[in-house]
Each structure stands twice: as C-alpha cells, then as structure tokens.
Design a binder for these strands. Structure first.
Lengths: 251, 251
DNA sequence: ATTATTTTGAGCGAATTTGAGCGCCTTTTG
DNA sequence: CAAAAGGCGCTCAAATTCGCTCAAAATAAT
C-alpha cells in the first residue's frame, strides 16, 4: 500500500469515527505503528487532522480544511459508484448534475469523455475547468453556503431551457416508498426540475442513504431511474426498488 | 497491450480507487513495473495524474486558478485599488462584478459589509462562499476555461432580470478614445450587459491598462464612470478621462 | 526481406521509505 | 504520589522504489 492510500484511509476512518489510534490503524492498514505515526505527522502538517497522544482526531474547524469530513466518509464506495456511473456515460451525451460528494467522485471518469454538462455546483465547474473535452455550463442562481450549489428561479429557468439526456444526482435519502429526499428544500426543488427535464435519471447513493428519509423531497416516488450504489447495500434494501422495475447497480 | 490502452486502464483504475501502486498495476495489466512507471511519468507529464513514490494518485484541479496571487503582476497596486473600491461600497448595495484579478483583490474588503452581489465568476463565488453577510448570486452560463467566468445568453439573461446598483469591472484595456476593451469577446459582451444594467459603473484598472486597446470591446466610449487606478498612472494618462468628466481615483 | 526506429524489460547504484530498537516523556492507575 | 504502561522522538539498517543505461523485442519503414 502506497503512502497516499494510507493517508486517504486514515482520513476516511477519522471522518467515520472522529478519533483513531495509531495502534488500530496499524492493524487495519497493515503498516507498522512507526509508519502510521509518520503519516499522522504528515497529515497534521497539512492541517488535515489534529495529532493527539496515541493517534489523531478531527480538526476543530472543519470549514477551513482541505479535507472535508463529509467528503471522506465512505470515500472508497463513492469512488467506485462514481467511476461506474462515469464509465457508462457515452460520448456526446448532455449531462446534468448537482454537486453531491458522490457526484464529485464521478468527475475523474468523465474527464476523458467528450460531452456537455450543466451543473448547479461551482465545485463541479472548478473541477472540470481544465478539461478541454467537456463543455461546462453553470445554471447560475443563489449560492448556498453549505453545499456551494446554486438554487432558486435562475437555476430553474436555465434548466427549463435545456434538453438533458441524463440527470445524475446524488441524494441523501432513498426509499422505495418515500422517494428521494435531501436536507435543503431549495436544492431539492432544483434537483426535481433537473429530473423533469432529463430523458434519463441516474441516482448515486451509497449504502448509508438507503431507507433514509429526509425533510426535503426531491421526488415523492421513484419511477424510471437507474440507481448506482455499493456492495454494502443489502439485497433486502435493493429489493423494494427492483420490485418497482428500477435497475440497481451495485459496485 | 498497446500503450494507449494501458494509459486508459491506469486512469480508470485511478478513478475507481483514488490511488494505485505501480506493483499492482504491473500485475493487473501484465506489464513490467518499469513500463508502468514510464506510463505514469507520461500521464503525469500530461497532468492526468500525480506521480507519487510507489505509484500515482488523482490530481486535484482546484488549485490551479488563474488568480493565484503569486503569479499576479502589479499585485500591490491591485490590492490598493481593490481595497479602495471595496471601502467605498455602502451597505445594502446590489453589486455586479466579473472575475478579473483586480476585482478579486476587492473581495477581502467587502467581507464585512452587508450587501448583495451577482457575479459571472466562480472564483468570486468561491471566495465569498463563507461570508455570511454577502448574498451571492451566480449569473450562470457557459464556463470559459481561461478565466473561470461564465458567458453567453444564460449569463446575459440573468443580468437583464436584475437591477444593479454598481457594476464593478476590471478591464484589460482602457483608453479615452477607444473605450474599454478586453481579450475575450464573449466576456466583453457580458460585461457590456452588466454596464447597461447598472446604475453606476466603477472600473478597476492598474496603470498598465491605460492606453491599451485590445480586440474585444466592452464599451466603445467611456461615459459616466468612476475609474480606480494606482498612483503609477501618470497625469497625462488620466487627463483625457478627466476631460470627459470621469472621476479618476488614484491610490 | 532487411534495416531503422520505437518500445519494453532487466540490471544497477542512488535515493527514499519503512520497521525496529532504545532512551525519554506523557498518561494512566493503584 | 509513585510506579507502571504506553507513546514519542530519534537513529539505523533493511527493504523498496527511482533514475538511468543497455540490450532484446516489437513495430515501422525501405
């Protein structure tokens, strides 16, 4: 295992558990305690975590950090989900997407494709800025601080003027009976418009999102859609969706 | 296996896993470690990945913004110009701005103000993301790679629906006879709309911009406007503008 | 078919990383 | 409060990886 991978897994564990011991990491990652301690020192130098006696803990002010805790949770799963969805996109497609953490993990795969993309998220725009083969359009609108996504009537109107081939959205809750949900009503509404305007809908959701029902409703029921998730999603969780005729892709 | 195919597989593995070791790739692709290392070097040269000891990791494309302060010419002047313009903005104003390097230097001084701002530039949005007191709206539109600004009919339409108090734009060329100019025609046009929609126009231009005439015309003639520049701008350069009744503020 | 060019794999010294050992220090526990 | 336990910083040797050269192999050109 190379250093970068250990660093990533340390941050991922940290995001999940809040604190980690060098001992435990050593056992989990199969590296000596000395190496783990060196890694922790490296990451502490980058302010990605706080070094503590015996291990490390999450930094206090998450906002200013290079590694967002939410981005690091279930990172490996999100990568696989994103890569799988990205690999299935065909050249020439017109894509719409938001800025969820799983959607972000899709971007490395679409960088080599030739397509057009409209997004509400400045993160996505930034990440694809250098990519020659992808034409990026921003919806515009009011900027939400928490997610760096744009919402409101401007975003909505932009989307209504575009014929989208595939809408790819990450959701915070997916439930066969209660539909797709998220935290912010404004974002939910923009996502809903995206779904309405799209010929095809792909949903990215890691296993932790299944059965979750959150306040803001994107879609009250799931109809035609492809759901991408990880192998951590049980058959029992996937079955209700498949009964609705929805394709569930587990990677 | 041909080289292009290996490159493709390496990038695809990287998208899936986030990091890869040369060892693992060698086994998976059936090529020697030496060849894999050469491939990684090639891809690193194209900035498609980051070479690390023992393998490679995904690149982060977010830190290569054109507004890197280190690369900026006349930085000190731009800071003074931006600070002066920012200081003159009153609370409650509705501002429009682009994303020029000088405009970026204005942002620190508007952090503490309470105002609304519409911008074409994702950098501005990103910079003000954490600022509670400033409500940020993005115009949306097609993303220009070089400047990270949005242009086109979407940006234009957003601006046409807003009554702007002050439009603050950085220009690449300012000349009393030939007007305001910049490099990109698309950006020039969006800036023109911004000027039309604004009750007041403030122009930020360091001394190097005076007398410059560039291909894309923002405004063929300068009418009512305030020009902010540095003390490096000579009286001779400022006089023609002042003769037109334009206020030139040198800081 | 033969020659020229490019690509690949292996070998080797240099550089980097890793893991273990050993006093010293911090935390815990009785 | 003192002793024990565990963690830290440090050094050093072993293990890996790197950069480089060179010959074999594959590919392209004549």
């Amino acid at each position: 295992m190379i250093r970068a991978e250990r660093h990533e897994r340390i941050l991922s564990e940290l995001a999940r558990r809040g604190t980690v011991s060098a001992q435990a990491l050593s056992a989990e990652l199969g590296a000596s305690v000395a190496t783990i301690r060196r890694d922790i020192s490296d990451l502490a130098g980058r302010k990605a975590l706080i070094r503590t006696h015996g291990g490390a803990s999450l930094p206090s002010h998450r906002e200013e950090l290079p590694f967002d805790a939410k981005l690091m949770t279930n990172l490996a799963e999100k990568r696989r989900i994103g890569a799988e969805a990205g690999a299935r996109i065909e050249d020439g497609t017109f894509i719409a997407c938001g800025g969820g953490t799983t959607v972000m993990q899709m971007l490395p795969s679409i960088r080599r494709k030739s397509l057009r993309l409209v997004t509400t998220a400045i993160n996505v725009a930034l990440e694809l800025r250098e990519t020659q083969s992808v034409e990026v359009t921003l919806t515009g609108g009011t900027l939400r601080r928490r997610t760096a996504e744009t919402v409101g009537h401007i975003a909505e109107r932009t989307l209504r003027d575009i014929n989208i081939d595939v809408a790819i959205i990450g959701v915070d809750g997916i439930d066969a009976l209660r539909g797709l949900t998220t935290f912010d009503p404004n974002e939910a509404y923009v996502n809903r418009v995206m779904l309405e305007r799209a010929h095809e809908v792909w949903i990215l959701a890691d296993h932790s999102k299944f059965g979750e029902v959150l306040p803001a409703v994107i879609a009250p029921a799931i109809t035609a859609a492809r759901v991408f998730t990880d192998t951590g999603t049980s058959d029992a969780a996937a079955a209700p969706l498949q009964d609705l005729g929805i394709e569930v892709i587990r990677v």
